[in-house]
Amino acid sequence: MEKVKIYSRFERFWHWTQMMLILLLIITGFEIHGTFEAFGFETSVRLHSAAGWAFLILTIFAIFWMLVTGQSRQFVPVRNNIKSQIMYYISGIFKKEPHPVKKTADSKLNPLQRIIYFGLIILVFPVQLITGFSYLFFHYPDKPFAFEGLEAIAVLHTLGAFLLVAFVLAHLYLITTGHTITSNLQAMITGYEELDEETETATN
């Protein structure tokens, strides 16, 4: 076992900023939706728009970073080991079996995570950004071109929000399924995680 750096500074900054913004967007978004009261409707509207802008800027930086560093390939789904990863979560984990796919600096996400994160990046984020900004700028039917009212946009936006909430919940839980209960969390904070050095070279 060796301490390996798997999350760069930018990645950690991106992750935690994104966490704060999405949390804020979820809370304020669902207050606007009428699900509960939090900051007050008006404050929530203002917070939601500001957080939406911040989220957009952060996302642009992230895309830039991914393209420049080539890290985007981390999120490309793979075919191998999907089944064994599923079997791990529904049975192996209870028998103290090892993770079927080793985590390495070059392959941080297991096959299931790749699918989920790929889905987020390709589907949910763009949907939330596009519907969110449409919601912000085209409230009314005839300016400057016609959407069929606000409804379709708002409903899509709400759907995306629900998916994100479900993701966040599952994500929070899955953090605890690493090598030890807190090893994933520590990695995202410090950047370092203890990885099996042997297999690391093997997968390289």
Binding site: W16, T17, L24, L47, A54, T190
Partner: peptide, 27 residues
């Protein structure tokens, strides 16, 4: 390393959050 971790994982994200709150508070 600890200082860097504190910076990138907490302080900078917090700074972004505070900036967002500040922008939102503008009336």
């Amino acid at each position: 390393k600890s200082v860097m971790a504190l910076l990138v994982s907490l302080l900078l994200p917090l700074a972004v959050l505070l900036l967002t709150l500040k922008v939102a508070a503008h009336k």
